[in-house]
């Protein structure tokens, strides 16, 4: 047998006798009855405990970004896979497919990185000052993650979240102001408005989270969209989702041909 293996350090949790530790806290005496699911998610993503006000902001984020229409691409996937009667594989597949994807909650992390850069480059948080950094990226062909609202004139979720933040004055914090300035510039230059990815990014940057943490947080806070569709899909077990009628599929691949061995 090889010599003793080095221990892997972990700050996540430990199973004690009579209690459990999570991120430095006793579950029984420090977290139970005090902590919320949003707070636990923040601890899981960033390893730090939030104040009640900060947790309430994450609750606002989770609620405001809800969009659970089963026809939206990743959510449709949960419907297809849950049609066999089980919800968790469908839920897991949807969560899996949005990491590093072009759409979906994970993009909040990249949007946060971009917003941080824009904020650093702009001399002040105004549309005029943001025009240069935005224009530079547009000319270079850089995709502005967090900007652009497909199929509708504005992202209703951004307005919903802003209204929530305004109740506690958080729309005046630096990263939200950077969002407003950058979105103003992007609208003028290319007709691009901020989408919910950028709004979540700004809100979470103002809470002190890093871009990688924001990607994870956004997924966790948005889970209900996927879960609700997976649960209902598993209950419905619809044959139409297991297999579409043949006449609803158009084959556009290679024409019929015979193999050399058939000839």
């Amino acid at each position: 047998m090889s010599p003793s293996l080095p221990a892997i350090r972990t700050r996540v949790g430990h199973a004690d006798w009579g209690d459990n530790a999570f991120c430095g806290f006793s579950v029984a005496t420090e977290l139970a009855g005090e902590e919320t699911i949003a707070g636990l998610i923040a601890m899981a993503a960033a390893g730090r405990r939030l104040s009640p006000d900060e947790r309430a902001v994450l609750d606002d984020v989770a609620v405001a970004m809800t969009v659970a229409d089963a026809r939206i691409w990743p959510l449709k996937m949960t419907r297809l896979l849950s049609s066999y009667g089980s919800c968790l594989p469908a839920f897991a597949a949807a969560i899996l497919c949005i990491e590093d994807a072009s759409i979906g909650h994970w993009t909040s992390g990249e949007a946060a990185a971009l917003l941080s850069q824009l904020r650093d480059e702009a001399t002040e948080l105004t549309v005029e000052a943001m025009r240069g950094p935005i224009e530079k990226r547009l000319k270079a062909g850089v995709r502005l993650i967090g900007f652009g609202v497909p199929f509708r004139p504005f992202d209703e979720r951004v307005r919903t979240l802003k209204a929530c933040l305004a109740r506690s004055g958080r729309e005046q914090l630096p990263h939200w102001r950077a969002l407003e300035a950058a979105a103003g510039a992007a609208r003028e230059l290319r007709g691009l408005d901020a989408n919910i990815g950028l709004a979540v990014a700004a809100t979470c940057l103002d809470l002190g989270f890093t871009p990688p943490q924001i990607a994870v947080l956004s997924i966790a806070l948005g889970m209900t969209d996927y879960l609700a569709n997976a649960v209902e899909g598993a209950e419905q077990r619809l044959a139409i989702l297991r297999r579409l009628p043949d006449d609803r599929v158009e084959y556009v691949g290679k024409a019929e041909r015979a193999s050399p061995r058939m000839k």
Binding site: D246, Y251, G253, E256, R257
Partner: peptide
């Protein structure tokens, strides 16, 4: 209103990239 397929033809007697799977590929490959 229709989903596009690029590799396998839908319906009975499937073809893959144009070759009949059951009558050709399965017999010779």
């Amino acid at each position: 209103d229709r989903l596009r397929g690029h590799v396998v033809t839908p319906g009975p007697s499937p073809r893959m990239h144009g070759y009949a799977v059951e009558r050709d590929i399965a017999r010779h490959y």
